[in-house]
Design a protein around this nucleic acid. Sequence first.
DNA 1: AGCTATCAGTATCAAATAGATACCGTCTTT
DNA 2: AAAGACGGTATCTATTTGATACTGATAGCT
Lengths: 134, 134
Amino acid sequence: MDTNPSDTTGLPANVLDPDCPSRVIFQRIGDKWASLVVQVLADRPVRFSELRKMVSVVTPKVLTQTLRSLERDGLVTRTVHAQVPPRVDYELTDLGRSLLEPLAQLRKWAEGNVPAILAARDAYDDAQDEALLG
Amino acid sequence: MDTNPSDTTGLPANVLDPDCPSRVIFQRIGDKWASLVVQVLADRPVRFSELRKMVSVVTPKVLTQTLRSLERDGLVTRTVHAQVPPRVDYELTDLGRSLLEPLAQLRKWAEGNVPAILAARDAYDDAQDEALLG
DNA sequence: AGCTATCAGTATCAAATAGATACCGTCTTT
DNA sequence: AAAGACGGTATCTATTTGATACTGATAGCT
C-alpha cells in the first residue's frame, strides 16, 4: 500500500490527499440524499414521483440535483419513456449496485450503535445546559 | 425486520423515516470532514494543530465544529492538558473505533471503483459539452 | 522590560448549498 | 372547458461552509 514519507498516521497517503479516491467516495456518500436514493433504488427501477414520496422530505429541486449527480457518476441511469403523462425511471447501474454492500454494512453498524450516539447527545446537551445554568 | 405496511421497496422502514438510525449515521458520515477525522484518529490521540496539518485544507472553525459534533456524539474525546502552550488531544472512544471497520470497507470499495466514477464524470461532461456546441 | 513565538481556538464576513414555494408544458380524462 | 398526472424548472430565502483576521496565556530570548 502506497504511503507518503512524511506520513505519521499509518493511513494510506491517499486519504489525506484532497484528490484521492477515498475523498471522492466520502463526498459521494456524504451527500445528504445520495446514499438514501441509492438504497431506495436497490431492488428495482423507480420513477421520479415515487422517489419523492419515498424520500418524503426532499424537495424536487434537490432530488433532481441528487439524481443528476448520481447519473454523472455512472451510479444511476435515467430512462425517459415516451408516454403521457411522462414516465422517467431511475435505476442503479452495476457500479451503483456494487455500492449497496458497503452501505449495508454501514447501516448494520448504525442499527447497533445509533442508540449509543443518541444517548451521548442527550448527555452532552444536558451537561451543556447545566454549565449554562450554573 | 420491521417493515412499513405501505412499503414498496423491500427496505426496512426505518431507512425512509426521517428519525431513523440509518439516517442519523448517514448524516454523520455525510459530514464532509467527520469521517476523515475519524480515520486520522484511528491509531493514536492527535492534537488540534496536527489535525489541521493532516486534513490540510480544513479551516480551524470548521475543524472545531467537526470535533465538537463528534464529541457530542460520543465518538471522540477531548482532553485538555494544563500546559503552556496548550495541548488538546482528540482520541477515538470505543464507539468511534467501532466505526473504523465499516469505513474501511467503504474505502476499499472506493479504491477499486473511483476510477470508474471519474471516467463516468469525464464522459458525462464531454457529452454535455457536445450537446451545447451542437 | 519588551518582542516574538506556540497553541487552540473565536469573530466576522462572504460564498456556496439546501430548501420552500410557485409555476410550466403536454396530454388525458371528465 | 376544466382539472389532473407527471417531471421537472424558476425564484427567492435560510442555512452551512469557508477565508481571513484576531485573541489570550505564557515561555524564551535579547
